[in-house]
């Protein structure tokens, strides 16, 4: 079977792609997508280690992560709506009223 560190590297790669998106994009919707990527990177880890230890706890947890990701998207979309309402834009760099 494939050694565990390859799964880890895959997960790290997905996570960093998501992070890259968050760091470079300005649209809040793209932020949401990037966060989905990062959450799924974590899921890859769960499942990898589920296989590693011969135990389905990780897999069950991955299911919960997906459910929570759905909840997160629901809230996230709501926040983006409010953001848009207040700033007429979904550009996160425009919403800078909570600064010094």
């Amino acid at each position: 079977m494939v050694p565990a560190q390859w799964y880890l590297m895959l997960s790290a790669a997905i996570f960093c792609i998501g992070l890259f998106g968050i760091l470079t994009r300005r649209n809040a919707l793209l932020f949401l997508m990037s966060v989905e990527l990062m959450l799924n990177a974590a899921n890859v880890n769960f499942i990898a280690f589920s296989l590693q230890w011969g135990n389905v706890t990780g897999q069950t947890f991955a299911l919960f992560t997906m459910a929570l990701a759905a909840a997160e998207v629901a809230i996230g979309i709501g926040i983006i709506l409010v953001l848009y309402r207040n700033f007429r834009d979904t550009d996160v760099t425009k919403a800078t009223t909570m600064r010094w």
Partner: peptide, 20 residues
């Protein structure tokens, strides 16, 4: 961050997966 993680994982070793 990716480079750091890869560096760390490359040096790590795991026992063979147990499987189901």
């Amino acid at each position: 961050l990716f480079l750091v993680m890869v560096l760390a994982f490359a040096g790590a070793s795991f026992p063979a997966p147990q499987g189901f």
